[in-house]
Every structure is written in C-alpha cells, then in structure tokens.
C-alpha cells in the first residue's frame, strides 16, 4: 500500500472517479493547469483535459451556481472553493439553492454536487485562510458535511460523496494536508458517509473530535493515558448526518464527554453534540459535558496557537471532567 498524505489521497480519489464516471467534472479557481493552490487536482488537467478540469473566473457564487446547473443537467460536478473562508459569496447558492433543490422541486431535481474546500487554522493564514465554518452548513437542511482527519478516510469518503445522491460539503483539514500520512489502499474503495470511527478505546471519558483537531485530541489522549486515564477517542469523520449511535454508546459507557473543535464555541457544532448526547444519556452522565474550542473571536494571526484548542487545553478538560464529582 502506498504511503500518501491527504492531498495525494484526495487526488487519487478524484482520478479514480473521473476514470470511472465520465459525468464527473472539476471546476474552480486555479484547479486546471496549476493543479490547485494545494495541488489537490495536480495532473488531472493533463489526464482528463480542459472540458473536465476547468479553470473558472474568480467568483465563488458563479462556481457553485454553475455546478448546480451542471448537476441538474446530469453531470457530477466537484467544485473546489480555494479556502472555506472564501465560500461566503456562494452562501446563497449553497444554502437556498443547492441544499433545497431536491426538496423544493418535489423531488424532481436532485442536485448532487460535492464541494471540496480546505478548512481550519494553524498554517499562519490569518482570518481569511483559517476559519472552520462547518456549523453554518450543518444547520442547513439538505446538506451532508464531511471532514476527514487522515488520507485513508479522505479517499474513501470522497468516493462515497461523489457517488451519493445528496449535495456534500467536503471539508479538508489543511493544517494536516501533508502531515497526516497513512498507508492508503490502492484502487477503488469507499468509506460510508455517516459512520464515526473509534480511534482509541477507553471507558473513562469520551473525546469527540474531527479534522485537524483529531490529531490534537490524540496527543492529549496519549498524555492522559500516560497519567493513567482511559479515554475513548471518536473521530466523527462525517459531521452531518452525525453517527449518533456511536456517540451514545460511548458516552453511556464512559459517563463523561469532551468535545473538541476549532470553530468558535458559541453556536459551534459542539453545542449541538452536547445537547444530543445530554438528551439521550442524561442518567448516565457523571459530569457536565465539556467543550474545548476556538474562542468567540475572529481567527487571529499571531496568536493562532493560543486560539486553537491544542492538546494541553484538551488534556486539562479531560482531567477535570474525569475528576468531577457531583
């Protein structure tokens, strides 16, 4: 099995699906000859030509609006939004149009568009190259939201997304784009949408994370284990539909829960997860559910490591929640 990073795994998935399905087209800013600013589409222009790997004018609303029209017509567009911070000019097309097209047309017009976009901070990108806007899209009825943490999941989930019938926001954690490596199976395989993965088993506290923060949470779990704690770490992989059964099973076992995400705390996905778990596990809970998140500030440049929920903050929350006695 070849060792790949997330960019190579995404690239591999796109190549496999473009070979398999002539309806798949890629469009976006700098995705063609240049191969994308993160190189995720490198080599695809040369292999599939300018009719299937298309450099567009610079307008995110145009990219997504065009992709919707293409999907209605019968193609399988996979547009790239260069940074998720730039997705907002397309917000209306995503929220009011793409997400609602099947429903509002009475099921006559599915719009299977997969929007790939890098998310998250930790690359010295400042406010406009670091945000994690997942909760805005999870809140939008009609969208599937995916965020893998490693190349194996990235490839399998992207193939599932493109083959699915729903619009998908496929968020790629850019901080670990190259750092997260793994032995990726060759050829075609899929990982199902909507299934979380238990990365580390334990019975004392459930830690929930995804994307780049999964790696911070993993580090915190290792430090906690060294201190004698037994944490269970869950990688959500698909944010919506969230794998509620996996969360409930775990928290019923541990009775304690720490949720980690980069996005600001208020109205972040952690709030929703906390509520879902509390509604289902109330009598099993031994301590309040803790959120370890980005602060309720714009994403800062110089102090990004103080903003991000790094391992020491996660570890402290795990220690406090396991020590908690009512």
């Amino acid at each position: 099995m070849p060792t790949m990073n997330i960019i190579q795994a995404v690239n591999d998935a796109l190549r496999i699906e473009m070979k398999r399905d002539p309806r798949v087209v890629i469009l976006g800013e700098d995705v063609g000859k240049f191969g994308g600013v993160f190189r995720a589409t490198a080599g695809l222009f040369e292999e599939f030509g300018d009719k299937r790997v298309i450099d567009t004018p610079l307008a995110e609303g145009g990219i997504i609006g065009a992709a919707i029209g293409m999907a209605l017509y019968g193609l399988r567009p996979v547009p790239e939004i260069q940074f998720s911070d730039f997705i907002f000019p397309a917000f209306d097309q995503i929220v009011n149009e793409l997400a609602k097209y099947r429903y509002r047309s009475g099921g006559q017009y599915p719009a299977p568009v997969v929007i790939r976009t890098p998310v998250g901070g930790g690359i010295k990108g400042g406010h406009y190259h670091s945000q994690s806007p997942e909760s805005l899209f999870i809140h939008t009825a009609g969208l599937v939201v995916v965020c893998p943490s490693n190349p194996i999941d990235a490839k399998g989930l992207l193939l599932s997304a493109i083959r699915g019938e729903d619009p998908v926001l496929f968020m790629e954690p850019k901080r670990v784009y190259r750092a997260a490596k793994g032995d990726v199976p060759e050829g075609d395989y899929t990982i199902p949408i909507g299934k979380a993965k238990i990365v580390r088993e334990g019975d004392q506290v459930t830690v929930i994370a995804w994307g780049a923060m999964l790696h911070e949470a993993m580090e915190a779990c290792e430090q906690a284990a060294a201190q004698g704690l037994r944490p269970e770490l869950i990688d959500l992989r698909t944010l919506w539909p969230v794998d509620i059964d996996a969360l409930v099973t775990s928290v019923k076992k541990t009775g304690r829960c720490v949720i980690v995400h980069e996005a600001p705390r208020t109205c972040g996905f952690g709030g929703e997860l906390s509520s879902l778990i509390q509604e289902r596990c109330f009598v099993h809970l031994e301590a309040p559910i803790r959120r370890v998140t980005g602060w309720d500030t714009p994403f800062p440049y110089t102090l990004e490591n103080e903003y991000l929920p790094r391992a020491p903050r996660i570890l402290k929350a795990m220690q406090e929640t396991t020590a908690y006695e009512a």
Binding site: G61, G62, G65, A66, A67, I68, G69, M70, L72, Y73, G74, L75, D92, Q93, N96, E97, K100, Y101, R104, S105, Q108, Y109
Partner: peptide
C-alpha cells in the same frame, strides 16, 4: 427548473446547465 425567490440565482444555474450541455 425550480423557481426561487432570491434575485438572480437562476441566471447562474442556467449558465451552468447550458455549459454542461
């Protein structure tokens, strides 16, 4: 295609469908 109330979105989608054709 489906009617939506926000102004102009259908123009962009029409362009996409035509482009796909």
């Amino acid at each position: 295609a489906s009617v939506s109330s926000p102004i102009g979105t259908q123009y962009t989608q029409a362009m996409g469908a035509a482009w796909a054709a």
